[in-house]
């Protein structure tokens, strides 16, 4: 995945069973963002792999003032890359469950 300067990681062990998982997002390199992020804390949230899209969450983060509107695509892409990796890993490790 391309280095967007925004890091997204699992905030819990993934056992492949739950559709909603906890993720943690923080800015590693503010210079890669167009706007100035509110603060460099780690933002933890729950994401439903089946019902939600990374764009929904990115927009909610912008609405909540964490990021500037001009960075919504970078934030969405960062979340999308991590979600894709989680789904790829689930397919490989727990093919039957999926």
């Amino acid at each position: 995945a391309e280095d967007t300067g925004v890091r997204v990681e699992l905030a819990e062990e993934d056992h492949g069973r739950k559709s909603s998982i906890a993720l943690r997002l923080w800015v590693e390199d503010p210079k890669k963002l167009k706007g100035k992020p509110k603060d460099n804390g780690a933002i933890e949230f729950t994401f439903d792999l089946e019902k939600e899209t990374p764009d929904d969450v990115a927009q909610e983060m912008v609405d909540s003032g964490f990021f500037h509107e001009s960075d919504v695509k970078i934030v969405a892409k960062s979340i999308r890359d991590r979600v894709a990796l989680i789904q790829w890993r689930r397919e490989r490790i727990w093919p039957m469950i999926q």
Binding site: G41, A42, I43, F45, T46, E60, M61, D63, G65
Partner: peptide, 27 residues
């Protein structure tokens, strides 16, 4: 505590905590 919580109007909770120093890329 150094955790703050923001709830978006759509209902999602965002919990903000300090990023561990070790995870911040050297600027």
């Amino acid at each position: 505590s150094s955790f703050t919580q923001v709830v978006h109007s759509a209902g999602r909770r965002f919990i903000v905590s300090p990023v561990p120093e070790s995870r911040l890329r050297e600027q």
